[in-house]
Simulated assay, not measured.
Amino acid sequence: MRPLPLLTALALLLPLPAEAHRAWMLPSSTVLSGEDVWVTMDAAVSNDLFVFEHVPMRLDGLAVTGPDGAAVKPENSATGKFRSTFDLHLTRPGTYRASLANEFLFASYRLNGEQKRWRGRPENLEKDVPREAEGLKLTQSLQRTDTFVTLGKPNAAALAPSGRGLELRLDTHPNNLAAGEPARFTLLLDGTPAPGVEVEVVRGGARYRDKPDAMRLRSGSDGVVTVTWPGPGMYWLGAETQDERASVPNARRRAIYNATLEVLPQ
């Protein structure tokens, strides 16, 4: 696993307010038809949504699921200064899900009077952080970033939740969204409905608007979030929660979920 630059690692831990960095994947198209079809995906962390101006998302945790539920190999993967990119060859009709899922442990501590920070795998904590470290604070971060594309008729085999961390059960198909129509999603934490979690929804192109026009919603007692899209476009949906259920002793857990969704005109 190649290490993320420190700025990227810290950006992925930032909270949800409008001024925060956001992690996202952006497909060149989401609904397609024909034969020998390709889609290009961009992946980045940015201040302005869907604009390459901060740091790339690394592709180490990338997994693509095809319409039959089997893994699909991405092609032509590359990481540049501001974004990563890869191609998907859509050889079967149905829905594909591209996911970037990463799990890291973040530590802050003092050593010889200096403040230190570390990021890595939980199994490397004892090796990399000195025993004489003082004021050790640990955060276990689980982050998932999704996007979806469909060739021909949509199906649901690729949409099954993993049961780990924060994610969505897509009660409304993610490639069947229309402006002015409500979409129903269920927020899950470790496979169980997650009530009372704040969800932010932002339409792309905010740098060309006077206001970001972010929608802030909260999951109900059953974990359900209903979004009525104000207009067509590409949207970013993000949610985050913290708890004491980390697998590492004395650590807090931070679970983050992001998705990019296209909403079409009615």
Rank of each mutant, 00 (worst) to 15 (best):
R131E: 13
T91P: 00
S162Q: 14
F104P: 03
K116V: 12
L138S: 05
K127L: 15
G80H: 06
L111C: 06
R117F: 14
F148H: 14
D128Y: 12
R121C: 10
P154K: 07
A133Q: 04
N102H: 15
F86E: 01
P154Y: 08
Y109G: 06
R117D: 14
T150F: 07
P161E: 01
P154Q: 04
A107K: 06
E126Y: 09
L142W: 02
N102W: 13
P122Q: 05
G94L: 13
T85K: 10
S99T: 15
L151R: 00
S99Y: 01
T147Q: 03
A107L: 03
G163F: 07
L166E: 01
L166K: 00
L100Y: 06
L90T: 05
G113T: 02
V129Q: 09
G94S: 09
P161T: 11
R97W: 00
A101W: 11
T91H: 10
L136E: 00
E134Q: 15
T91S: 12
P154H: 03
A107D: 04
A160F: 05
G80C: 06
L159N: 04
N102Y: 12
K116A: 05
E103T: 14
Q143F: 01
P93S: 12
H89Q: 03
R83T: 06
S141D: 01
K81P: 05
G120R: 06
V129G: 11
E126Q: 11
R144C: 09
K81R: 14
R121P: 04
G165K: 01
P93V: 11
T145M: 08
L125I: 11
E123F: 05
